[in-house]
Each structure stands twice: as structure tokens, then as C-alpha cells.
Write a protein that binds this DNA or RNA. Structure first.
Length: 386
RNA sequence: GUGGGCGUAGCUCAGUUGGUUAGAGCACCAGGUUGUGGCCCUGGGGGUCGCCGGUUCAAGUCCGGUCGUCCACCCCA
């Protein structure tokens, strides 16, 4: 038997559509426009944006050479492609902000486990050309709206990584601290000192965390602007009555983030607790060859929130069946009329009244319309509410 | 990439120290005086025991490998 590839799933679940509809509705209500970018992109797009030091680029991409000799890969995340498109269409030369939402599959060659697949779906938004922290609040509010609409409980964590002014200075101090305690840190963290020192902050090992407690915090080293913006962020969320926690160790795995970062966490889905993540990336457009353009965005992991949506089983639609084959044309014609404004299922296999009612019940229909010999003569239905 | 658990019917799982035609519950189909579902009763269909190899008179059961799956590490949505 041929099976789907490891870590890839067929989606046979109406919840997926429900999430799609909800995210689309909310994004459109926020004034964002739809964008769909290619699933296949040049590999260097992700190397330059996500960052070569990240695990995603390092070891999780589906890379190959196509027949034209191009180094390509299946997209491991959504932001890079949208940014590429933004620049390619010269939107970076406009003064007006552009806001996009997308929904589609992403690919990462990882070892599958709960809430982690090799093909998974993300809904995401990207807002370009708006430097204000109030925009950060807008999009956090959008994510919160989506979760509220879907009835998903979450914890929001926020942090600020600082800008190109304060971040490098902080990094120096942190590296200095880490070098001092190098011998007590785990192997991974020792490696991180050179590669990506910020990542040591969210090391899961208790031994490292004990040392890192004393480490300098980014939030204590923000420049004046970043500090003010971080305070505005908190006030803005308070104003919208969105609860949050400040997590000074919240570091995101993609290299392009600056200033505001945030994550939505759920404790009901195992170790993969992040259901959405995002933040500001003011330098990314420029580093991919566009004009300097501030931007902020986030993405939601669809498979992860599918588990969190409770299924309501309500009856809906009409079941139509015939007890004799001669009645099939009649029910098909009637179904055509009824379907104009409601869900109508036609059973084309003739069977007993009892069997039809049973099937209609199992199918969670609200009403059953059955036609037998008598009904066909009169041109009417045997009707039953379920 | 590392570690651990698990692969028997569509689903959840039994299967005793290796021993005849491999079981249960749920689901499915058909009946229960020919046209009233959910409950109940009866009957029925359905499994190359993940795959390959080995040990043995004999393997679902033991051994090795492989693939898959789940959980965790790692990483992230």
C-alpha cells in the first residue's frame, strides 16, 4: 500500500475549513489583502532571511536542484516569500503601507511528533511600511481575535529584542557574560555563544537557566525609543484588554526579528506549545534588496490549533432518499430546488424507510424526506424531523 | 540528528510457558410479521498478525534488520 510520506497528513476534517474561514474573515475585517506566493522558492531567499544559523535553514529544508539547475526549496515559512514578492512588485517604493494575509502549506524536514509535521499549514499576516508600535498591537489583536472566535484559550507572551541601535550593544554584554560562565554552560549553549548568543536565553536546561538568571536582560538594555515602544505596547494591549506576560527570555528562532516579539502559547497540546508567533522585522526588506521598510507580522500553526477546537455536533441539512428506484428522478429534481439555500444530501440507493431514517440519523441531518410508492404517486414526501 | 514506547479487523485493543480453522467491543450491512431512526436481540461481511530475514517439527508469540507511528530531546507554528 502506498502511504503518505512521513510527517505528511491528509486533511479530512471540516475544522480546517472553519479555521480558514475564520482567519480570512478576521484578516479581511482588519483590512488586509490576500496574497499567495509560490511554494517553491530559491533556496538563497531563506538563507538570507531566516538566517543560516537557524535550524530551519541549516537542517530542515527540503532542498533540491531543479531541471534548470536552480537551487530551490519548499518554503519552510511564509514571511520570506511575501517579502520577496513585496520587493519584486516594487511596493517598497510606495509610501503607503501594504498589508497581506496568507494561508498555505509549509515544509520542514523534522522528526514528527505531537503538533509537529513535515508538511503543516500556516495562516500569517505581514504589514509593511508602518513603523509604529501601534501596528504591532493591531496585529497582536488580530491574532487574539482569531483565537477568541475559535474558542481557543491561550497565553500571550511578549518581549522586545531591541533595534539595530541597542541590540548589538546588548549582545556584546551578553557574550561577555556567557564567556565568563562558559565552562558551566551546556554544549549547545557554548556553541550558541558564537553562532547566536541570544538563543542561549531560552535553553531548556535547568543548569543553564540557573546561570542565565544572572545574565543581562535585553529589556534592561533597550535604547530610549525601544524602551518607550515596549511600554506603549503594554499600554496598548491593556487598552484592548488583551492579557499578556512579559517573557524576557522570549527569543524567536528566526534571525530577522527586531523589537517586538510575541508568542501565543497553549498548554493543552504537548511540548509544542506555541500556536502562533511573530514580531517586528524592520531590517528584513532591506537585507533582501528592497528599500528600508519597517514590517511586522505573525503566523498561526493551523494543525496545532485544530486540536484545540471543540467540535460541536449539531444537526443540519436535509436527507432525501427513495424506497424504489423509480422515485430517484423525482427526488433529484426536488433536491435541486431545495439546494438553492440549504444543504441537501441525496441517497441514490433505494432502501427501506427504516434504513433511510437510520442513515439520516447517522449522517447528523436535521430532516429526512423519503419517497416511496405512495408518495411518488401523489408527488410528495414522507417527512421526518430528526 | 538523539532517546524511549508501540505496530493484530475501518477504530480501540485481547491473544496465557511458541501448538489446530486468530478473538472481543465499537463501527458497518441485513433481519426482528413487508413504511417510522437513536435502545435491544439475532445473523453477516471484513485480518498476507507492518515488511524482510532468522531460530524451530511448529512463530501473532522468540531473535535481527527495516519501515511506520507515538512521545520526549532539539527546534518551531
Amino acid at each position: 500500500m502506498i502511504k503518505a510520506l512521513r510527517g505528511m497528513k491528509d486533511i479530512i476534517d471540516d475544522k480546517f475549513l472553519k479555521i480558514f474561514d475564520t482567519t480570512r474573515e478576521v484578516a479581511q475585517n482588519y483590512g488586509f489583502s490576500y496574497i499567495e506566493t509560490p511554494i517553491l522558492e530559491e533556496t538563497r531567499l531563506f538563507k538570507r532571511s531566516v538566517g543560516e544559523s537557524s535550524d530551519i535553514v541549516n537542517k530542515e529544508m527540503y532542498e533540491f536542484i531543479d531541471k534548470g539547475g536552480n537551487e530551490v526549496c519548499l518554503r519552510p515559512e511564509g514571511t520570506a516569500g511575501v517579502v520577496r514578492s513585496y520587493i519584486e512588485h516594487k511596493f517598497d517604493r510606495l509610501e503607503t503601507p501594504k498589508r497581506f494575509w496568507y494561508f498555505g502549506p509549509m515544509f520542514r524536514y523534522e522528526r514528527p511528533q505531537k503538533g509537529r509535521f513535515r508538511e503543516f499549514h500556516q495562516f500569517g499576516v505581514e504589514s509593511f511600511k508602518e513603523p509604529s508600535v501601534w501596528e504591532d498591537i493591531n496585529i497582536i489583536a488580530m491574532a487574539a481575535d482569531i483565537f477568541d472566535k475559535l474558542g481557543i484559550k491561550y497565553t500571550l507572551k511578549i518581549n522586545s529584542l531591541g533595534c539595530s541601535e541597542c541590540m548589538p550593544k546588548y549582545k556584546e554584554k551578553l557574550v561577555e557574560f556567557l564567556q565568563k560562565h562558559k565552562d558551566s554552560l551546556c554544549e549547545d549553549c557554548q556553541r550558541r555563544i558564537k553562532q547566536n548568543p541570544i538563543r542561549t536565553l531560552d535553553c531548556k536546561l535547568n543548569s543553564c537557566q540557573a546561570i542565565l538568571k544572572e545574565a543581562p536582560k535585553i529589556t534592561d538594555h533597550l535604547c530610549k525609543t525601544c524602551q518607550e515602544d515596549f511600554e506603549k505596547l503594554q499600554k496598548g494591549l491593556d487598552n484592548l484588554e488583551i492579557k499578556y506576560e512579559i517573557d524576557k527570555n522570549l527569543v524567536r528562532g528566526l534571525d530577522y526579528y527586531t523589537k517586538t516579539t510575541f508568542e501565543f502559547i497553549s498548554n493543552e497540546i504537548g511540548a509544542q506549545s506555541a500556536i502562533a508567533g511573530g514580531g517586528r522585522y524592520d531590517k528584513l526588506v532591506e537585507s533582501l534588496g528592497g528599500k528600508p521598510t519597517p514590517a511586522v507580522g505573525f503566523a498561526i500553526g493551523i494543525e496545532r490549533i485544530m486540536d484545540l477546537i471543540k467540535e460541536e455536533d449539531k444537526r443540519e441539512g436535509i436527507y432525501i432518499g427513495a424506497m424504489i428506484e423509480e422515485a430517484i428522478p423525482f427526488i433529484q429534481k426536488e433536491a435541486k430546488k431545495l439546494r438553492k439555500d440549504q444543504k441537501v444530501y441525496v441517497e441514490v440507493k433505494p432502501k427501506s424507510l427504516k434504513a433511510h431514517l437510520k442513515a439520516a440519523d447517522k449522517g447528523k441531518f436535521k430532516k429526512a424526506l423519503i419517497v416511496g410508492e405512495d408518495e411518488l404517486k401523489k408527488g410528495e414526501f414522507f417527512e421526518k424531523e430528526l
